[in-house]
Simulated assay, not measured.
Amino acid sequence: MSKGLIEIDGSLLEGGGQILRIALTISAIKKIPIRVVKIRAGRGKPGLMEQHLKGIELVRDMCDAKLNGAQLGSTEIEFWPNKIRGGTYTSKIKTAGSITLLLQVAVPVALFADSAVLLNLTGGTNTEMAPQVDYYTEVFRPNMEKFGATFDFELKKRGYFPKGGGEVKVTIDPVPHLNPVTLTDRGKITDIYGWSYTSGSVPIRLAYLLAENAERLLKEYGHVAIQKYKEDPKVGFDNSSGIILVAETDNHCVLGSSGLFRKNAKVEEIGEEAAKKLIDTFKEGGCVDEHTQDQIVILMALAKGESKVRIGSVTLHTKTAIFVIELLLPQVKFEIISEGTTNIIKCRGCGT
């Protein structure tokens, strides 16, 4: 192993792209040189795919890093970060690779730049195997704001599988530090709302069908208001259909789920599946849902003070995030306390 590099085994735990994303984020913010080996070894096609490569290159540009081994199919990279600089950065995924996954790695890094960061990103906005970009803005962003940070978001075009081609602009102002949070009492659900959409040649009646099946299951938990619409052809020109659901509580918790139409699936199943995922979150009693919990631990680790967050079941992605963070930041330790159907994650952040 090269001198001064911390080596991370990408085959462990989740065994996919998340290990790489978490490692790059912490490496860039804390200026820790890393070597990641066995990248995506747990996947059917190991190594870097287009979206992973673009994520690495984006963070490289943001912190003027020295980078070795970053090419399609590579299973090993070395990354030496420097100072994170503000400015405008562009990343174009040629496939429908997820823009949301680019945001997951780049937004926390941008929070610690020396001036504002503008990201121009191209790729998939609403795709399988990643949260839809609407989830990132409507569910993750409110949770991020509890730590004292946010971002501005402009959707220019949507990109669906398999073509991609979506375009977004994201502006992030740096913060002096992240604030610790205590989210241990979810409270009562007060609002359930969302968006059900179609685009291209998909008829709008399918948006109504998606919403109706979600509303049918969710109505026992309170008033449900789901907007049904067909995307403007200038914004969403390819064929797609999906749904994003959000729930808020009287203690300001924000939870969510989503569904995306896929080949050979019945339209009514998509709305039902999204509703059931949200209901499962309700029943577990956590203050964040499964897709926010693994991202929020990054913010907890970087916050100035002790954070406590109640979650439901600890996902493999969360275990993976904690593993990578503790490996790179030995001064940061997480504690998970089981309480019935929930768990409380505790962490005293490093305050950077």
Rank of each mutant, 00 (worst) to 15 (best):
V314E: 13
E290Y: 05
S258E: 14
I26P: 01
L101F: 08
R141M: 07
V139A: 06
I172W: 11
F140Y: 14
V107F: 09
G10T: 01
G16T: 07
F147Y: 12
I99F: 00
A207D: 05
E167C: 05
S27T: 04
I279D: 09
F261G: 11
G286E: 02
L206F: 15
M129A: 11
T318S: 11
K188Y: 12
F112L: 01
E76L: 12
I270Q: 01
S91D: 03
K263I: 09
T281S: 15
F282P: 03
I270A: 12
A65V: 01
Q331P: 00
I325V: 10
H177S: 14
G16I: 00
Y89V: 04
T182W: 02
T122N: 13
R85M: 02
S338K: 15
P46M: 10
A130E: 03
E138R: 15
G42I: 03
H52G: 10
K156E: 14
A303V: 04
D250A: 11
K157V: 00
K66T: 09
G285S: 11
E138Y: 08
A303T: 02
N213K: 12
A70C: 13
S338L: 01
T292R: 00
L178P: 04
N126W: 00
T125L: 12
F334K: 08
V109S: 05
L20V: 05
N82Q: 05
E145S: 14
V139K: 04
E215F: 02
N179K: 14
E268T: 12
L245N: 11
N251V: 04
I99G: 04
Y160W: 05
N213Q: 11
N143S: 07
E57T: 08
S307G: 05
F147D: 01
I172K: 08
E14L: 14
K54V: 14
D173V: 10
G86I: 03
D289V: 10
N126M: 10
L102E: 07
I189R: 07
G351M: 00
E273T: 15
I29L: 01
I8W: 04
M49V: 13
E284R: 14
G15T: 14
E231G: 06
Y197M: 11
I29W: 07
T150H: 10
G222V: 07
E284I: 03
D9R: 13
L13N: 13
Q293T: 06
L118V: 14
I244P: 01
G159E: 06
N343Q: 06
L72C: 05
E268Y: 10
T249Y: 14
C350S: 02
D294Y: 15
F261D: 00
G236C: 06
L316D: 15
K333M: 05
L67Q: 02
K156V: 15
T320F: 12
K263Y: 14
G349E: 07
F112I: 03
L329Q: 03
G42T: 04
L103E: 06
S313D: 13
R216W: 00
V324M: 05
G285C: 04
Q104Y: 14
G256E: 09
